[in-house]
């Protein structure tokens, strides 16, 4: 893919997943070979929503190309699009100017459950790459096709076959209908709350969480990634509507599996398992999907 990488680098600032201090993170890259195919430590959502920024000034956005995004993380942006694209000018400008090249995982990762949400081969993508031996199979969107003129065309058959095989190695969870099975008074929420320390990791690690807080800092108005687990989140003068931690945890899962499904016809989850990995007390979103609510 080096040739396309070089061509893209003429128009874009180049970023990719690279290994630093033993972690795969995102940094500037000069050539394709620097990019790590391993699973990055986090979903690189700061490319579209900075952790903290002044909202009174929208700077001209540079064109950025990000290589080595995991399919599950990229899927998160397509889900976020449904809520914020066209509404949040910062996100929208960056989304327009950012090319994401995602790697489809060859093998299931530990704990991941992307097949439950249609992964790991995505139907929407900029550049989607699947390694096969020494070679990449590529799916390229129309928007970026010009950089791949010299590459073999794929009709997607290889990807479909791969997806089927992958699915047999990572069995999909029974997600369908969870919006009807889940119950408001389930004991899950209190059990989760007894362990949760409100660290915010589930939100910060989630490739689909987009909520932020607004605050004033001198002559700047800033926004910062927020966490719906915190009691100050969306609080009004009377405090938070969801006074107790179990209510806030329930809200997080209802948003993902009930409200978003009902309003956007999608679940707000990609099966990346990052919230589980970063949670210090092992709260597992898969339990919310698998739980036997009617048996409680």
């Amino acid at each position: 893919m080096s040739e396309a990488f070089i061509a893209i680098s003429k128009d874009f600032e180049m970023f990719g997943s690279v290994e630093r201090e033993g972690e795969i993170i995102f940094d500037r890259v000069g050539e394709f070979d620097e990019i790590s195919e391993g699973r990055s430590r986090y979903a690189p959502k700061e490319f579209l929503m900075q952790r903290n920024e002044n909202v009174l000034l929208l700077k001209q956005q540079e064109k950025k190309a990000v290589f080595g995004v995991m399919s599950c993380d990229l899927k998160g942006f397509y889900l976020m699009d449904k809520q914020v694209l066209g509404k949040d000018p910062f996100y929208t400008e960056r989304r327009k100017n950012t090319l994401f090249a995602n790697f489809v995982c060859n093998e299931p990762c530990e704990g991941g459950f992307c097949t439950s949400f249609g992964g790991p081969v995505l139907e929407e993508y900029d550049v989607q790459a699947l390694r096969s031996g020494e070679k990449y199979h590529l799916l390229v969107s129309e928007k970026y096709d010009k950089y791949f003129r010299n590459y073999e065309r794929e009709d997607g058959a290889f990807f479909s076959k791969f997806k089927l095989e992958f699915g047999s190695k990572m069995e999909a969870l029974q997600v369908d209908g969870v919006e009807n099975r889940i119950t408001w008074n389930s004991g899950l929420w209190k059990e989760f709350a007894s362990r949760c320390i409100s660290c915010g990791a589930c939100n910060f690690s989630c490739p689909t969480c987009y909520c932020f807080d607004l605050y004033d800092d001198g002559d700047e108005r800033k926004r910062e990634w927020d966490s719906c687990i915190l009691s100050g989140f969306t609080s009004s003068s009377a405090g938070n509507n969801r006074k107790d931690l179990d209510e806030r945890l329930r809200q997080r899962f209802y948003h993902k599996f009930v409200y978003f499904k009902k309003s956007k016809d999608e679940y707000l989850c990609t099966g990346c398992n990052r919230c589980v990995e970063d949670c210090p007390v092992g709260i597992d979103i898969k339990e919310v999907i698998n739980h036997n609510y009617s048996g409680e």
């Binding site: 600032e13 970023f15 630093r20 201090e21 033993g22 972690e23 993170i25 995102f26 940094d27 500037r28 430590r41 986090y42 690189p44 700061e46 490319f47 900075q50 952790r51 903290n52 920024e53 970063d278």
Partner: peptide, 16 residues
């Protein structure tokens, strides 16, 4: 680990 390649800082716990 604090990482910022020009995208605003990102803070992650060190997994090792």
């Amino acid at each position: 680990i604090v990482n910022d390649p020009g995208t605003g800082e990102r803070v992650i716990g060190y997994s090792k």
